[in-house]
Nucleic acid binder design. Sequence first.
RNA 1: GGGCGCGUAGCUCAGCAUGGACAGAGCGGCAGCCUCCUAAGCUGUAGGUCGGGGGUUCAAAUCCCCUCGCGCCCGCCA
Length: 546
Amino acid sequence: MPFREFKTEILNLLENFEVFEKDLELSDHADMACKAAFRLSKHPVELAKKMEERVKSRSSEFRFIGSVERAGPYLNFFVSQKLLDETLRRVLTEGNRYGALEIGKKVVIEHTSANPDGPLHIGHLRNTVIGDTLARILEKTGCKVERHYYVNDMGRQIALAVLGVERYGLESIKGDHAVANAYIRINRDGYEESDVEKYMERYEEGDEEIVSTFNKVVETALEGIKETLKRLNIIHDRFVWESEFVRSGYMRKVLEKLLKLKECKKNETLYLDLSEYGIKKEVHLTRKNGTSLYVLRDIAYHIWKNEKFERMINVLGADHKLYSRQLSLVLELMGYNSPENVIFEFVSLPEGSMSTRKGKFISADELIDKVVETASDLISDKDMEDEEKKKVAEAVGVGAIRFDIVRVSPEKPTVFDWKQALDFERQTSPYVQYAYARASSILKKVEDFDLRWDVAHFNHPSELRLIKELSMFSFHLERCYRLLKPNIMAGYALNLANAFNAFYRDIPVLQSEGNLRNSRISLVMASKIVLGEVLNLLGIEPLERM
RNA sequence: GGGCGCGUAGCUCAGCAUGGACAGAGCGGCAGCCUCCUAAGCUGUAGGUCGGGGGUUCAAAUCCCCUCGCGCCCGCCA
């Protein structure tokens, strides 16, 4: 928080010069640099000199600006002792609430939503991890967040999976894998198209026997998927089945509204002509046999969301880009808000793209098992009970997976790499967890101390850097919120851990004495709190020991 | 063919929204650090035509145009 206020103070101070947020930047040369003079004058150095004068004459009015230096046309601002003091005070009094914002919107975030025809694979994982991390970030900004998994129980793929299960039965293995095996097999062996059609029709009509069969298959796959998600510290508040909108008659009402649009046309099927909006291909709402298509049910779902939420966020793979534009356009034509889409590019395997249908994928379960096993080997000779070792290996493994995914910007296409997934070093979550564990370890050895500090005791660059990092938590949180880019939080986690490790190297805590010792211990406590909270935002478990 | 995204060190990535101070990290390479709070750590060093070309600008990795490479989309699939 204090760092955001520091920035606000600079803006207020230079308001008369028409300096805006975009003129400020983080810099190696300062805590915050102002580059406005370039933009505002043909003689930037002269202007910067004037600004400098003004700042120097008034800077005593501000709390968090400590000093300013001019470097040519740049103004370099430095934080005050007061900011350092206030940062520690807030972290230590607010605890894990430190850094929270109060934006407070009601938002729904839909993520994962993988078809219940098989297990989650490493492509789905990108959706899941981005979505869950964003949900956590939004909550921290004070939003009321509902996490949805939209269950596609009506599609062709599901009908085919059901046929597969009927033909081959379910193996007695984890449900999602069992369904996948039947689905892969029927795709390989072949099937009658008319059988698939018939199943879709009967399911949409609500044929009791078929509904119960579909439900069983979908539930079986979903149970397995939920188990995997839980292991990754991911829960959904609500699983919304597509068929809910059909059964409740909601979709019917939506269809009636759609029919009133001038873009809505009918011949063999019902479709939307969006050519005047630059979308050449018609958007079909129904099939020739009268059954609904995904987009129709999805429109219904989004109208329902409109009624309940102020903000709708969907996490979608790059293959949904055009689709999501079409959906948004239709919603707008109907007079509704459209969702905000967080699009991520594909994860592929070194040998090419993944496919559930062809059985060409690395499942999330396989990945988790292997990473946890590697973590387990690494701690095998540590002095810990087996129980704790197991817990640590799981937390490290899951953290490494989540972090490996979330650290990369969503728009970057990636190729899955085992070596990277199994790396537990510098730019990974174990590095952050390790900093947390080191802080814990120091605090565990403290028997008596007073929770008090004097910022005058913090004069080593490593200490100053660490406190400044702590002060920037909500600054980065706000950036994540605005840009919906969770990789920013991963980057902050790394910076913070890095700053703590430098502090750990340079500053003896336990051997120091008196108020110097109290101050340092207080700083370690504050670091532990913020490191822990950042890990929570990333869905990674902080560990007391590892 | 059209649309969207990506291309930055040997490898994996920041930085691009809102153009500014020498383009930053990690891994890998090389050279070092455990009588000291956990070495999953730390220090130093080498390594760059920011895919290529043009343009705008006092200033371009960042903006515009062209071009090459890769991925995705263009279904009465989801």
